[in-house]
């Protein structure tokens, strides 16, 4: 029978190598052997995704690869999650509200950021695409979010990001919520101009910026 370490390594490799079909069987085997589900997630699945991020940073992996790796990770999570003890919730995890701003439906970048943020342990609240500006603020208040992440591909919808920031100010909660923006037409300069706290060029970098803004190690 495979040891815990062997199974964790196999899970990590399967995520890294985009094997989204057989990974469920390996996760089943891991659970049936009585090993801890949270360890399986963190040291198996997430480890594989982190290795994929490193390859992305080195420009060896691309968006396609990250998507396929995440398919494998989520296939594994479907098996492991139900075996987490009830009190093993994310607990101290930082919360982030994410969405594509109103008027825009391009969401592949946003989806990728969400995947990488979840991998890094953030609790994500995904509002989807074409999100009314008020919804960002309402959701952030509802879940007591640490971070709002907005994305757009269209120049015509960029000003919506500034409006969200203004709405946060109007409601007196701007100082308690960090704001990150991204998307093809967005730049660090634009982020600075509208008073956002952070900007990143891609999904892997977004996690680093988010961690820095939220004071996560």
């Amino acid at each position: 029978m495979a040891t815990k370490e062997e199974l964790l390594q196999k899970m990590s490799d399967m995520v890294f190598e985009m094997e989204d079909e057989e990974i469920a069987d390996v996760c089943e085997e891991y659970i049936e052997a009585g090993y801890d589900a949270l360890d399986g997630i963190l040291h198996g699945l997430v480890d594989g995704m982190n290795r994929a991020s490193e390859m992305y940073d080195q420009e060896e992996y691309f968006v396609t690869d990250l998507l396929l790796c995440s398919d494998a990770m989520y296939a594994g999570l479907d098996v492991l999650r139900p075996h987490l003890p009830e009190d093993a919730s994310v607990g101290e995890a930082k919360k982030a509200v994410i969405g594509v701003v109103e008027g825009d439906t391009h969401d592949i970048g946003k989806n990728l950021v969400k995947i990488m943020m979840e991998t890094a342990g953030f609790e994500m609240f995904d509002l989807g695409r074409d999100v009314p500006l008020d919804s960002f603020v309402e959701k952030a208040k509802e879940v007591d979010a640490d971070l709002i992440m907005m994305s757009t591909l269209m120049t015509t919808t960029m000003p919506g990001m500034k409006e969200v920031i203004n709405k946060l100010k109007e409601q007196g909660i701007r100082d308690s919520i960090k704001v990150m923006v991204g998307g093809s037409p967005i730049s660090q300069k634009y982020a600075d101009d509208i008073g956002a706290d952070g900007y990143s060029r891609n999904a892997v970098e977004a996690v680093e910026v988010a961690k820095r803004l939220c004071g996560v190690e």
Binding site: E59, Y61, F62, V63, T64, D65, I108, N202
Partner: peptide, 9 residues
């Protein structure tokens, strides 16, 4: 573009 597709694809 290289950002989405990457060189290989």
């Amino acid at each position: 573009c290289a950002d989405i597709l990457g060189k290989r694809n």
